[in-house]
């Protein structure tokens, strides 16, 4: 057995278990093609993937920055987006808005349930929407007592941030899912 390969594995194991924190000095820039590139410790990444590790409970903390090509190896973790440079913050936020596209429901006009499907007519921060959910599957998940994620038949996501902020009438319509 060659010691060489063993070293490779030792190295790999170490890499797999190590946690890298991305320093606030890391440079994130918007590329010409609309992606995010990263310069870190003299290394340049053309395009990186940004993954929220706590998309619901802490959306802007603990962002995993990953290589785009191949298996998407983790480059490191941003602990707090607010501490990054203004430019980095801006490009990362823009990217996240697109990748985590989830309209937030601000008003419910109607919910009709029929034949195992519920039809929603709502106003969101992205505009007025009508969508259908399957009542048989777990289309509405409760993140907390007052926060809901609703997944339509095509797996588009909609969010209700605070059920208590809705009117009595809207709440009554939602009752079916609370």
């Amino acid at each position: 057995m060659s010691d060489n390969t063993l070293n490779i594995f030792e190295q790999k194991a170490e890499e797999m278990t190590a946690t890298h924190i991305i320093p606030v000095t890391a440079v994130f820039t918007q590329t010409e093609g609309g992606f995010v590139s990263l310069d870190l410790d003299g290394k340049h990444y053309d395009r990186v993937k940004i993954v929220r590790l706590f998309p619901f409970s802490d959306a802007d903390k603990y962002l995993s920055i990953r290589e785009y090509e191949g298996d998407g190896k983790e480059i490191g973790i941003i602990e707090d987006l607010d501490l990054m440079s203004a430019e980095a913050k801006e490009v990362i936020k823009a990217q996240l808005t697109l990748c985590y596209f989830t309209p937030v429901i601000s008003k419910i006009y109607s919910i009709k349930d029929e034949y195992g499907y519920a039809y929603f007519h709502v106003m969101t921060d992205k505009g007025e929407c009508r969508f259908a959910i399957n009542m048989g599957s777990n289309a509405v998940s409760k993140l907390s007592d007052t926060r809901l994620i609703i997944v339509d038949v095509d797996e588009n996501r909609f969010e209700i941030r605070d059920v208590d902020a809705l009117s009595q009438k809207e709440k009554r319509m939602l009752d079916l899912f609370l």
């Binding site: 992606f35 697109l98 985590y100 095509d154």
Partner: peptide, 27 residues
């Protein structure tokens, strides 16, 4: 494929470029 959105991209004239984005309704 992301959460609730999808992006079609390609390298155009050797530059990685976003071509189009869409929700799952057209996936």
């Amino acid at each position: 494929t992301y959460i609730g959105s999808n992006v079609l991209s390609a390298s155009y004239k050797s530059v990685p470029t976003e071509l189009a984005a869409f929700t799952n309704r057209y996936s």
